Amino acid sequence: MSYDRYVAICQPLHYGTLLGSRACVHMAAAAWGSGFLYALLHTANTFSLPLCQGNVLDQFFCEIPQILKLSCSHSYLREVGLLVVSVCLSFGCFVFIVVSYVQIFRAVLRIPSEQGRHKAFSTCLPHLAVVSLFVSTAVFAYLKPSSISSPSLDLMVAVVYSVVPPAVNPLIYSMRNQELKEALKKLIQWVHLQQL
């Protein structure tokens, strides 16, 4: 998404050539391939762990830190390996997004008209808000000190970073559609009238 925004704002005349179907296929293949390999690495590690503290997790999905709490083995080398791969992958994505948005903001701030800047920012800020929500809650979930860890807090943070961004993303992008805005206004008015 950040590359799409970058090309649309910083190089709009080259959008068709830079983001043609071939480029989109390559980016999708890279995202799916890296996601598949990352998931395969975690799955292989998870199935090789002996569990001696039962098999009940205090989460709504099998999250790696929760599974490691149930493990009998203290295989710190595995944890460090997974952490290094996770940090490298996450840091690479984070740097790419930050560099893209720095270029976008530089280009937007050079737009002479207030309306043009507003339109460009309204295109980018929803994506940046969803990414920021995901990154901040995921960082909190995995890097918080164990002294403030509790099952209910872990569950709430896991819901926020795994459910909220994918659920909010379509809503944010669809709110740019005028017909949907009108339908939402009518729904809110109808609900308000029903409450009276």
Rank of each mutant, 00 (worst) to 15 (best):
H192S: 15
L155P: 02
F61L: 05
E79R: 05
A31E: 09
R176E: 08
Q195Y: 11
L70C: 12
T137E: 00
C62T: 11
S122E: 14
V98M: 00
S149K: 06
E179H: 04
K185H: 08
Q103W: 01
S152V: 09
T137Y: 03
S147G: 09
N169H: 11
V130K: 03
N45K: 04
L40W: 14
V85A: 13
V108N: 07
K186W: 15
T137L: 03
C52H: 04
K119H: 15
L70M: 14
L77H: 06
T43Y: 13
T46F: 11
F36G: 14
L89N: 14
R22I: 09
F36N: 14
E179C: 01
V191H: 05
Y173A: 06
H42D: 09
L41P: 04
F47M: 08
F140L: 14
P151S: 00
R106K: 12
L171C: 10
Q194L: 14
L128P: 05
Q115I: 13
A29E: 01
C24G: 07
M156S: 05
I111N: 08
L109Q: 09
C52P: 03
A120C: 12
H127F: 10
R106G: 13
S48E: 09
E63T: 02
P170Q: 09
P112D: 13
S21E: 11
S122A: 15
A158G: 01
A141G: 06
S90F: 15
R5H: 13
A29V: 06
V108Y: 03
V99M: 03
N169K: 03
K186I: 11
F121A: 04
L18H: 08
Q66F: 01
P151W: 05
Q11H: 10
P126K: 12
A30G: 09
D154T: 05
C88H: 07
S132N: 09
S48P: 01
C88K: 02
L153V: 10
E114S: 15
H14G: 02
F60A: 11
I104M: 02
V7E: 02
Q53S: 08
P50E: 07
L125A: 07
Q59D: 13
Q115H: 13
S71G: 00
H74C: 10
S90R: 12
T43P: 06
H127E: 05
L13N: 07
F96K: 00
L68E: 04
S174W: 03
Q11A: 08
C62R: 05
T43F: 14
V139N: 08
I111H: 07
F60I: 09
Y6A: 03
A158D: 04
M175L: 10
I9S: 04
C93M: 04
L83E: 00
R176F: 04
P151A: 03
D154V: 06
G54V: 12
V95M: 11
C93D: 01
S90Q: 15
E179I: 01
P126D: 11
A120Y: 04
V168G: 06
F61E: 07
V56H: 15
M175Y: 12
H192A: 14
S71I: 06
S75C: 09
A141K: 01
H118D: 15
G35P: 07
L19W: 02
